[in-house]
Amino acid sequence: MSNGGTRERHAWIEPGAFEVAPGIHRIPLPLPSDGLRAVNVYAIEDGGDLVLIDSGWALEEAREQLETALGKIGYGFEDVRRFLVTHVHRDHYTLGVTLRRTFGTSVSLGIGEQPSLEAIIAGRADGQLSQLRRWGAAELTELVEANRQGDGQSRDHYELPDDWIEGTTEIELATRTLRAVPTPGHTRGHVVFLDAESSLLFSGDHVLPHITPSIGLEPARAQLPLGDYLDSLRLMRGYPDMRLLPAHGPVTGSVHSRIDELIAHHDDRLALTAQAIEDGAGTAYEAALKLGWTRHNRRLDELDVFNRILAVGETAAHLDVLVTRDSLRSSMVDGIVEYRTASTSAPE
């Protein structure tokens, strides 16, 4: 891609407040040292106040940028009545929590995030170390332990929400009605918000225009996160098509077309992951070593440690779906999940 193409692709991260529909502004906030570059917060003007979809990461740079952007549309932090948060990841949840301490703003979160949030608050979020061991990634586990930093500061930015969003529910605002729909997969408690009258979907990380969301990166990982994710995609495909207002990337025209691309992508990855087992891989880690990663088809060992964790977790998620489809078999051997083709006998 040319430099011009790269700039165009990342134009959405430029600071500001951008009207995407009457009374709705997209506000990108920075994610320093994060490959995602920025997170979109959406400010909905509502009867003289604001309701924000997601909040950003609790960093001073993000707080200042949000305050500046709100000022450009005539509001301040004191005017934010409520944060509707799509999921518990720090770039969506933590700035809302810190602003609540000063301004008393209400914070809402999907009930499925409760196990992970309680684990984070209690200091039991171990960076998926136990999962890495199950996935056969002993080498990667050692790297994580050697480079792990204390997470006490990050825990300081996590608290329970004011209310939990349970099931599909209508959220009545002063000027519009939003429908909250649980879409587990990226995390267990991920929710999206539909504005049916305006034909808009605030998709969080469930549907993104340029990348495929990570699956199951959370302290309390679901048993079958990719299965949940594919079910959630099919659920949203059943709604009328809408404009896509994602957490990362530009606003785009069709939720349906992007969902079709994501389902096709995972079909391809399932086939490649099954082939890795056919070619001799026995664990999720070994399969991840045989697969290509990112748009540039990089080897696993070319990624940084965090993205290697994501890659191995993604591989395990695909392998477990293949087991449920009877394409593969799995068994636990000395605390490690081993996979084999359906025609191969189990180890003695």
Rank of each mutant, 00 (worst) to 15 (best):
Q153W: 14
L31T: 02
D228L: 09
L178N: 04
E45T: 03
D46C: 05
S254R: 06
Y93Q: 00
V88A: 10
Y93W: 07
H266K: 04
G189D: 08
L245C: 10
K72A: 14
H10I: 15
Y75E: 01
R188W: 12
R9P: 02
A222R: 07
L66G: 00
E197M: 07
L84M: 10
K290G: 11
R134V: 11
H92M: 11
R176G: 05
A276W: 00
R155V: 15
E118V: 15
I111W: 14
Q223S: 13
E286M: 05
G35T: 12
L328N: 01
E67A: 15
T344V: 12
E314P: 07
S154V: 15
R325C: 00
A138C: 00
A311G: 06
P30A: 01
D267V: 03
G292I: 00
T344E: 15
S2E: 12
L201Q: 08
H25T: 09
T175L: 15
D49I: 12
G280C: 06
H186P: 02
A317F: 05
S2Y: 09
T168C: 10
P182Q: 02
L66M: 09
D326W: 04
G204A: 01
R234P: 04
Q131I: 05
T141M: 10
W164A: 00
M332E: 14
E8Q: 14
T187Q: 09
Q114V: 11
A288S: 08
V207F: 09
T169R: 15
T183E: 01
A222N: 00
H10T: 13
W293R: 10
F77Y: 09
E170F: 08
Q149R: 09
E338H: 13
L29Q: 06
A11E: 13
S130C: 09
R325N: 06
D260W: 13
E142T: 11
A125S: 13
A271S: 14
A119W: 02
G253T: 15
D91S: 11
F77A: 14
Y93P: 01
G96F: 04
P240E: 05
H248R: 04
P184C: 04
L310M: 12
P246L: 11
S199H: 08
L117H: 10
R243I: 10
H296K: 15
Y42E: 02
L319Y: 02
G313E: 03
A264C: 05
V88Q: 07
R243E: 05
G150T: 09
D151S: 12
T98K: 13
D162I: 08
S345W: 00
G292D: 08
G123C: 10
H210E: 14
T175R: 06
V312M: 04
L235W: 06
R148H: 13
R299N: 12
H186V: 06
H186M: 04
L36P: 03
V41E: 04
D54T: 15
E159T: 10
Q65E: 13
A288R: 01
I111F: 15
A276I: 01
E338Y: 03
G282P: 03
G16M: 11
H92C: 05
G76K: 14
E118L: 15
E218F: 11
T141E: 15
I263M: 05
Y93I: 06
L245F: 00
L224A: 13
L160M: 12
